[in-house]
Nucleic acid binder design. Structure first.
Lengths: 231, 231
DNA sequence: ACACAATGTTGATATATGTCAATGAAGCGT
DNA sequence: ACGCTTCATTGACATATATCAACATTGTGT
């Protein structure tokens, strides 16, 4: 599962530091850097599994990963994680267990940092702590939106939401290459794979988007927004 | 909406301090106490509204409240809040807006504390900060369970989950007086009021529970657990 | 005690969505 | 290039669930 271990770059050079690590001093960053190690995952490989201990803070530096809850027979994808973003589950401060699984959707590289060092910095650097709390909060807000979409919209609206999520937040371009599977699409929108495919087909027929191969282009974002909002 | 303002008791005497405030020094507790004020809400009254600014940290000291997201046409109840519990939304560290609404289910008393004082203590007291992060994390975990229940179980399983939530976490006794409405029951389980009523009726007919007036008694928790788990 | 409003209950019906099964297409190792 | 496995697509069908409307019950103010 784990392919290589190498300390190629340095945290101080990594663009990681522009975001959550922006409030760390060079000394603190060096501390993180010294304990960190880099891992490669092939597409499909599991990064960590729901229920297992959570000794590392994971920073995805290349590729695309997903975090998902393994529920009753099927999965619910909470989010896709692209570079440079972090995976810190709520278990870190509760019982050091993962409450969701993570796996690589595309080939991935990630840096793992010892969680105890992370917690130490939270205690010592209030700016860093605030930034952490802010990120956890943003994650919660995102989850709220997702829950409302999943529980109060019908399939068309949910697929519309997922398409916006992919084009605006993940791939960040309009004709984009869909690197996730239809099953992932279904797990993001809480429906069966077959239903997801059918809705996409309808959207194609109505001229809202094109989907040839795995290249998806939104042609009529206004109408798609409308579908998202009318549920 | 607000009925009385009084500084009757003191934070140091309040059982609030046993939980999240347990790590505060007498001095810090006094700071909270000096800025706090107590408010009464009648059943049905709104405590705060989704989208409005969030200048206070709310501590429910008596009665029962609900926090709920106002979605597309209907509400989703995220949790019931009983004494002594706190309402801190994710907006506090993001844009100081509420991302859900709160209202009194039963007549309530609550203490409001200025959020800036709260944030100040988070910065100054690492133990308090950790306890706060822990509580936010527990909230997230609870939400995960809820999302899975809502998106992957059918109505019977969802109602079973809500009944366990009420008897184990909220009312904490077995024959208990249901002080929430059927609509609230529906908003907790993400279904229509009519469906919720029908499932309850079925459970009664199968001898799983009795429900006379608003007194609900779970007769066969084992079977109810089974229903919860088979979705 | 009365009327009126809010809440709860029930039945009939429509429909959104999942499931199952068959088929087609695409990637992959030999 | 071949078979093989995985993934995507489509259709037919079953059913879980919402909606609508009627009616019953409870509470509440006068």
């Amino acid at each position: 599962m784990v392919n290589k271990l190498h300390h190629s770059s340095n945290c101080a050079d990594c663009n990681c530091k522009v975001s959550i690590f922006k409030n760390l001093s060079p000394l603190e960053l060096a501390l993180i850097n010294s304990s960190r190690f880099q891992v490669s995952y092939k597409a499909g490989e599991i990064i960590f599994k729901q229920g297992t201990p959570s000794p590392y803070f994971v920073c995805v530096t290349s590729g695309l990963a997903k975090i998902y809850i393994e529920g009753y027979g099927k999965n619910l994808i909470l989010a896709l994680i692209k570079p440079v973003d972090y995976i810190f589950g709520p278990g870190i401060y509760v019982d050091n267990r993962h409450y969701y699984s993570a796996s690589a959707v595309e080939d991935c590289q990630a840096c793992l940092v010892d969680v105890t060092i992370f917690k130490k910095l939270i205690r010592e650097n209030p700016d860093f702590a605030e930034e952490f709390i802010k990120r956890v909060s943003l994650q919660s807000i995102f989850n709220f939106d997702q829950v409302i979409s999943l529980t109060q919209k019908q399939m068309h609206g949910r697929i519309a939401d997922v398409i916006f999520y992919l084009s605006d937040k993940i791939y960040c371009q309009n004709p984009f290459e869909l690197t996730i599977s239809r099953q992932d699409l279904a797990d993001l929108s809480g429906m069966s794979k077959e239903s997801a495919i059918r809705i996409l087909k309808e959207f194609k027929e109505e001229g809202i988007l094109t989907l040839s191969g795995n290249t998806l282009e939104v042609l009529n974002p206004k109408q798609l927004r409308q579908i998202s909002e009318t549920g």
